[in-house]
């Protein structure tokens, strides 16, 4: 991406999202919903990439921030009945932003106490924070507790999902590609040297957490209004790991790679499902020769993760030699 024209690209992307969304009713609804997942996963992965990839702070709690956004936005929109289109846009946008802001506050709360921690310690503590958030929602009867919460409005559409994906990509890219933003990478490369160069490592880390959490919250809101049903269990640390895997696969600190990875990993289960559904292959006698794939797809997924780490730990789409130290 040419950074010089980042803003032009961004505005172009928004217009494109809008144009495509005009034709959304031409798309088969099954694929339309998958496309929302793609947009949401791009937001999640790119925002996590700011924390994990660029700033080098390994967070395993992204699903927790997502949960905050999802529950906040859903709780707000559930207060409203049927609305006219313009009002619904305003309410939805407000609810998403509120979810993002509350998630950002959660990010601040996580970011500050974890400043002193590094590497795998930080990973486990953020995981712990994510789990605490989940347990809190499990105990909040006002939003359904463990039973989950129905979301009345299915307001998420192609424009919102990809529009916010474009916003996320723009914000992260614009931040990092500036003199200011090189500070994130400095913190990742060498914290001691960074602070010796006058960089407040604290500020950068907290900024990364807050910005990352904000977009995770937005993604959560979009997710809630796409699935129309959310449970605390849906935001457990498996979900966090799934986002981390997108970042790793794409290559830490490589936004384009991470976007590709988010798309591929969203499509992977669908692809495997399609393979499992193949009824007949010429030359092979058995019907449904790949039906075993549907049982083993998560096994394949975890095996692929291990093999990826053993052979290309820098990610599939990264030119860099290795992860940050």
């Amino acid at each position: 991406m040419n950074i010089r024209h980042a803003k032009t690209f961004f505005l172009g992307a928004l217009v494109l999202c809008f144009l495509v969304s005009l034709f959304a009713n031409q798309i088969n609804s099954y694929w339309l919903f998958i496309s929302y997942d793609i947009g949401i996963n791009i937001i999640l992965a790119v925002s996590l990439n700011l924390i994990n990839g660029y700033t080098g702070q390994f967070s395993l709690g992204h699903a927790g921030f997502m949960a905050v956004g999802a529950y906040t936005a859903a709780a707000i929109t559930n207060q409203f009945g049927e609305l006219n289109p313009y009002l619904s846009i305003a309410v939805f946008l407000g609810a998403l932003l509120a979810g993002g802001l509350l998630a950002a506050v959660a990010g601040l709360l996580v970011g500050i106490p974890t400043l002193r921690l590094r590497g795998d310690y930080l990973a486990i503590v953020t995981l712990g924070f994510g789990e605490i958030i989940r347990v809190v929602f499990q105990n909040m009867q006002s939003v359904g507790g463990a039973r989950g919460l129905s979301v009345m409005h299915g307001w998420t559409n192609f424009f919102w999902a990809f529009g916010f994906a474009a916003v996320t990509v723009y914000v992260v890219t614009a931040l990092v590609h500036s003199t200011y933003g090189r500070g994130f990478i400095a913190v990742r490369d060498d914290e001691v040297a960074a602070s010796a160069m006058g960089i407040s490592t604290t500020k950068y880390k907290v900024t990364a957490f807050v910005v990352g959490a904000f977009f995770a919250g937005i993604a959560g809101g979009l997710y809630a209004h796409s699935k129309q049903f959310i449970t605390p269990g849906g935001f457990n640390f498996m979900q966090s790991i799934a986002i981390v895997v997108m970042v790793i696969l794409g290559g830490m600190g490589n936004t384009i790679g991470v976007i590709i990875a988010a798309i591929l990993l969203t499509l992977l289960p669908e692809g495997l499902r399609a393979i499992a559904d193949i009824e007949h292959i010429p030359g092979i006698v058995t019907a449904h020769p790949f039906v075993w794939v549907s049982d083993t797809r998560m096994i394949i997924y975890s095996l692929l993760l291990i093999i990826l780490m053993l052979t290309r730990p820098q990610g599939l789409f990264s030119l860099r030699k290795s992860l940050s130290k």
Partner: peptide, 18 residues
């Protein structure tokens, strides 16, 4: 202790933060 993954230019530019 340079910032190994950054260019020479960025290594110096980073201090302009200040």
């Amino acid at each position: 202790r340079l910032f190994g993954s950054m260019t020479v230019f960025d290594n110096v530019r980073i201090t302009a933060q200040l």
